[in-house]
Lab assay of single mutants.
Amino acid sequence: MQVTWGNVTVTFSNPEEAKKYAEKVARKLGGQVELHNGQFRIK
C-alpha cells in the first residue's frame, strides 16, 4: 500500500501502518487523506 503526496511516495507492506502514517503526514501538512485506487493520497 502506498502513501503519496506531492512527488513523494512511501510504500508499506502493512495497510494499517500506511493509514497511520498517512494520517500523521496529513496532520502535519494540514491536508486530507483520500483512499484512491489502493493508495492513500494527501491533498
Rank of each mutant, 00 (worst) to 15 (best):
V33Q: 01
G6N: 09
N7G: 09
V3Q: 00
V33A: 05
T11W: 15
V33K: 01
S13Y: 09
R27S: 11
G30Q: 07
H36C: 14
G6T: 03
K19P: 00
G6D: 11
N37R: 05
K24W: 15
E17V: 12
V33W: 06
E17Q: 12
R41A: 08
T4G: 04
E16S: 11
P15F: 15
V3Y: 01
K43L: 14
N7D: 11
K28D: 11
T4Q: 09
E17P: 03
R27P: 01
A22T: 01
N7C: 14
L29G: 03
K19I: 08
V10K: 11
L29T: 13
T11N: 10
V8K: 11
N14G: 06
T11E: 08
T11H: 13
A22H: 00
K19G: 06
E34Q: 07
V25G: 00
Q2P: 04
A26H: 02
K43H: 13
I42W: 02
K24S: 12
G6A: 08
T9A: 05
F40G: 01
V10R: 10
E16K: 10
Q39W: 04
L35R: 06
L35H: 07
V8H: 13
K20H: 11
P15E: 11
M1D: 04
A22D: 00
K28I: 15
K19H: 08
F12C: 05
T11V: 10
G30D: 05
N37P: 04
N7A: 09
E23N: 08
P15Y: 15
K20P: 02
P15T: 14
Q32D: 06
G30E: 04
M1R: 09
G38P: 01
L35M: 12
Q32Y: 15
A22W: 02
V10A: 06
P15I: 14
T4R: 09
K24E: 14
Y21F: 14
Y21M: 05
Y21P: 00
H36P: 00
K20V: 11
N7F: 08
W5T: 03
A22R: 00
V3C: 03
E17I: 11
N14K: 08
V3W: 02
R27A: 14
Y21L: 04
G30H: 09
V3F: 05
N37M: 07
E16P: 03
E34K: 04
I42M: 01
A26G: 04
V8R: 09
K24P: 00
K28G: 06
L35F: 15
F40M: 05
N7S: 11
P15W: 15
H36V: 15
E17T: 13
K24N: 09
V8D: 04
V25P: 00
K43P: 06
E23M: 09
A18M: 01
R41G: 04
N14M: 06
F12T: 00
Q2M: 11
Q2N: 09
N7Q: 09
Q2F: 07
K20Y: 08
V10W: 13
Q39R: 08
G31D: 02
G38T: 03
N14L: 07
K20S: 11
K19V: 06
Q2W: 06
I42T: 01
H36K: 10
H36A: 09
M1W: 15
E23T: 07
V8M: 12
A18G: 03
A22Q: 00
V33T: 03
F40E: 01
K28V: 13
T11S: 12
M1A: 10
K28Q: 12
T4E: 05
K20Q: 11
W5P: 00
E34P: 00
P15Q: 11
I42R: 00
A22Y: 02
R27I: 13
G30F: 05
Q32K: 14
Y21C: 11
K19D: 02
G31V: 07
H36N: 08
E23S: 06
K43G: 07
R27E: 14
K28T: 09
A18D: 00
L29V: 13
N37Q: 08
Y21E: 02
R41H: 15
A18P: 00
G6V: 03
M1G: 05
N14Y: 06
N14Q: 07
N14E: 08
L35D: 05
G38N: 08
Q32E: 12
E17C: 08
L29W: 09
F40L: 12
W5M: 05
V8P: 01
V10I: 14
E23G: 05
V10D: 01
M1P: 06
V8T: 10
L35E: 09
F12I: 04
Q39Y: 07
I42C: 06
A18S: 02
F12Q: 00
P15D: 06
N37V: 03
T9D: 03
